Simulated scan of single mutants.
Amino acid sequence: MLTVTNLIKKYGKQNAVDDISFELDGGEVVGLLGPNGAGKSTTMKCIVGLLRKTSGEITIGGHDHLSVEAKRFFSYIPETPYVYDLLTVKEHMQFIAQAYGVKDWQGKAGELMEMFELDDKANKLGRDLSKGMRQKVSICCALLPDPQLLFFDEPMIGLDPKAIKNTKEVFKNLKEAGKTILVSTHLIDSVETIADRIMILKDGSIIGNDTIANLKQQAAQSEISSLEDLFLEMTKDA
């Protein structure tokens, strides 16, 4: 579903992403973990085409990641949600439906807005929404076209506890439907219960890439009490 090969992103002489390669299979939920500044958001923005990569190859569904064919495969939920000031919540959904050619979108839009408690805010303008509400609108818009691949960049930040629970439930349902999800976060507990696999980034390089079960076994053998402690141990400065 997603193949990243020898991805490099330079800022001046510094490698923000330093020659990383990985693949995501269909129906897989993968957590991209790392401390702040590790290169998680840069990696994700290069994949979705918001940043120009310095070198490397990225394919989505067998297509170059910048092609229209690839863009039909995925949705991207950024860390800082962007909404249109003068569109209402419902008009955001309508805009996405028209852009992606989603037919009979009103029913699904209604279900999503109800799930994220936006149904009573359907006619509220984007400029009047809190950050948490904007994040919810962003997630609803991403789910509306029913993409095969979803990229979530720090999805839990700004959400209230109920919305976090709903988002995790959405992840579970998407996985059961065979969707592929890449979740970027620096909070391991936000993905520990939903991820099949964890990739750990540090200083732009992948320093760990394994299943949750194997990482837990590694933690136990190292007499480390939790995945969080293992993550902190792996990413600490030497």
Rank of each mutant, 00 (worst) to 15 (best):
D210S: 09
K90I: 13
I20R: 02
V68M: 12
G62S: 11
I207Q: 07
E176T: 12
G49H: 07
S190R: 07
D104N: 15
G158C: 06
I77F: 06
I77Q: 03
L187H: 09
G204Q: 05
T5C: 13
T3G: 10
R197G: 10
D120S: 15
I164S: 12
A38M: 00
S205L: 14
L143R: 01
V30G: 07
G208R: 06
E117T: 13
E57G: 13
N6S: 03
M234W: 08
A219V: 10
D104Y: 15
A177C: 10
I194S: 07
I157L: 10
T235G: 01
G126A: 00
C141P: 05
P147N: 07
Y100I: 00
K45H: 04
D153N: 09
L33F: 00
K71P: 05
L182R: 04
A238L: 09
M234T: 03
C46R: 04
K71Y: 11
M156K: 00
K131V: 12
T42S: 08
L182A: 00
D64Q: 13
L230T: 07
D64Y: 00
Y76T: 11
K216T: 11
V183L: 06
D189V: 11
T185M: 10
I188M: 08
S41G: 12
Y76G: 04
Y100G: 00
K168L: 11
E117Y: 09
F74Y: 02
F74Q: 00
M44A: 04
K108T: 12
G110Y: 15
A238T: 10
A16L: 06
A109G: 02
A238I: 14
H186R: 05
L125Q: 04
G158W: 05
T3D: 06
F73M: 14
T80G: 15
H65K: 03
G61T: 13
P78T: 00
